[in-house]
Write a protein that binds this DNA or RNA. Structure first.
Lengths: 338, 338
DNA sequence: TTGTAAGCGTTATCAA
DNA sequence: TTGATAACGCTTACAA
């Protein structure tokens, strides 16, 4: 029914081996021959069978996406970014949301990979910080690229967003609005992304000679509920900060909620900022000052790096390692009133 | 390196054909033989190669997910639901966000399917309403299941959420709060989901003998920006409704924003409701009364239906066609003050 | 530069 | 109930 390599070979009067060479862009084909074959391929609409190809060459033209984070918006952008590059190169994307807490997680990922002989995987934060997973993938010889906030792997294996720098911008934004007493709702400190963001923020405050006592830093779990509790701690006291920065938009939204409950006006009496720029940030009232990572582009880079690995050394594209998030200023931060 | 069917055959002293029968659960295998083979399979950790299997049997064990809607939350839930069933049955999920506006869209989907010889696809709204796509899939003999708000296909090919009924609940919720002058921000009327929701809403109002003049119904585009304009039309006038219902949460959020700009208190002076129960709905202030579809379960059902199609008639599971969304009451709707 | 022949790991045909 | 043997559509030694 559908056109095979044999049909193309017959029609163009060459061997299937030559057709194979053409579709694989082998240089060892005469110009005339190549053109004739390409002609026939176009005429017949031939498209090589992935399974057969994979069976013969042990490749699948399938890339995997491993993640745990339930931040749907982020994931959707990653998928679209990754697919934009996949489409050009004939790869497909197979998704694998897992639960990194599960003891079986790493084996589960390895099975996922071997089941479909994936040509490589992209790993999203926070799973991307998992050293054991990365080690297991290296051992299994599975190409991978991690998206992360810290430089924790070779340039070939990672796309880093410089969140430390982004949080410096956030700090200077607030200080320049006059804030010197700032509360910080951090993420879990066992995540590098959390420590990184906090470190960047504190480092920039230093520059302005602003101190942040430990009592102003409370650790959340990156979800709404924990954000509520942390914000409550920071705000439900006469001695409250004039600004709150949260490790992500979910917790910043929680801070807005607590402020609303306590009848504290944002931004007049309190500034609030988040991190992620998810859909919430632009829709919530007041809209949220936050930090946006170039997620789509990071995913593009990741796929390119993955595919680079299967190229000959001289054909490798030079690809950047680090991308820069940007500060998005909105309604929730304003001049300090005190 | 990895164990193949030949190894299993040799080790268990039978032909590979017999091993094949065992792994495919053919009844034509002696009990003793079957057990011996299963034993060896367990010992060796043999797992049949998908590509080889697919090449020989023209199946891929790959399901596709086709969508256009950029509602990320919804899509993430669908993916997780679908995968929960896929995992049990050894299928993987390949994603394909497209743009249904593109003239090439249907061909693009067909190529997507044939490229990887997908065993079936799930189509999400609003693309799921596309008749031409469904027809093309039938012609291409590609099994599909549509997730939709209206019963527009055979029970085997669709999972319907009864949005008409859900909107009846919404209407009665508002009427019982005392609202009789209600504004409705509809979705594009060329979508069945839009007409269906509006129809359900109006039908229930009839029951209460409440009239909705045409001027109270404005058509949005299901996005935030159009929601802003529609809400402005309805609210920025002395003669404004006491409640606004929007076709989705994005536009309801826009209504909240416009109300905030016009200094109209929600829910004291105005009730607002949406549809979707996306992350926005629970985080925004005031939190949004809305309707939640059992998206995860719908996706589970869709995969089961897809796989049912490749089963023998007598092994087919009976699967429901319709699911029921639920009304989620939150802060944004309250007693009518007039 | 091109072709021949042997796989890749399954399932399918047909006979025993 | 079983088993040889031939596909499936492609890539890859190895020759020529």
């Amino acid at each position: 029914m559908s056109v095979t390599i044999n049909d193309v070979a017959r029609l163009s009067g060459v061997s299937k081996r030559t057709v194979s060479r053409v579709i694989n862009c082998s240089p060892a084909v005469g110009e005339a021959t190549r053109e004739r074959v390409l002609e026939i391929i176009k005429e017949t609409g031939f498209s090589p069978d992935k399974q057969a190809r994979g069976l013969a060459s042990s490749r699948s033209y399938l890339l995997g996406l491993i993640y745990d984070n339930p931040d749907a918006l982020y994931i959707d952008q990653v998928q679209r970014g990754a697919l934009s590059v996949c489409a050009e190169l004939g790869y497909e994307l197979v998704v694998h949301p897992g639960s990194s807490k599960h003891e079986d997680f790493i084996d589960d990922c390895l099975r996922f990979i071997s089941r479909s002989k994936l040509d490589g995987v992209i790993i999203l934060p926070p799973v991307s910080e998992n050293k054991a997973l990365a080690a297991a993938l290296r051992e299994a010889q599975c190409p991978y690229v991690r998206l992360a906030s810290v430089d924790l792997d070779d340039a070939d294996n990672i796309v880093v967003s410089d969140e430390r720098a982004a949080m410096r911008d956030m700090a200077s934004h607030l200080v320049e609005l006059g804030h010197t007493d700032i509360g910080f709702i951090s993420g879990p400190q066992h995540f590098r992304s959390s420590t990184e963001r906090l470190a960047g923020f504190l480092a920039e405050l230093q520059v302005y000679n602003v101190q942040l006592p430990d009592s102003r830093i409370v650790e959340g779990k990156n979800n709404y509920e924990s954000g509520l509790m942390c914000a409550q701690t920071l705000l439900d006291t006469p001695n409250r900060p004039t600004a709150i920065v949260a490790n992500n938009d979910e917790m910043a939204a929680a801070a807005l909620r607590v402020a609303s409950n306590l009848n504290i006006k944002v931004p007049d009496e309190l500034s609030v900022a988040g991190f992620d720029d998810n859909i919430l940030a632009s829709r919530i009232i007041p809209s949220l000052t936050t930090i946006r990572r170039p997620v789509y582009n990071m995913a593009c880079l990741a796929v390119q790096k993955l595919i680079n690995k299967s190229r000959a050394t001289k054909e490798k594209l030079p690809l950047q390692k680090t991308v820069t998030p940007t500060l998005v200023k909105r309604e929730s931060t304003g001049q300090c009133s005190e």
